[in-house]
Amino acid sequence: MTDLDPVIHAQARLRIVAALATLDEGESITFPRLQELLDMTAGNLSTHLRKLEDADYVVVEKAHAGRTPVTYLALTKRGRRAFEDYTDALRALLEGAP
């Protein structure tokens, strides 16, 4: 059996990565907006984002809108590729299944 990427293969992180994968390459989203659209708690989202950031799947960029700090999130190239590989692996597993 193919090993599924353990970073992505967990419900909360899979949801985050799947959602971020709908963004165009180069596009990013703020933390609160992602939290709202995913309907996750801030604590839960940041815990899982940290794991994704540690794996270099998500890039967290701190910017400023006037004086307010804004955190922008996006998949890295590596993250986008990992997500594609992960879904390919799932499909392969399903096709291989009797």
């Binding site: 967990a10 419900q11 499909r91």
Partner: peptide
């Protein structure tokens, strides 16, 4: 609950 492993079909459906 959020971290439990998913079976492949459920994972694809979740995506």
């Amino acid at each position: 609950n959020e971290d439990r492993p998913l079976d492949p079909a459920a994972a694809l459906a979740l995506v």
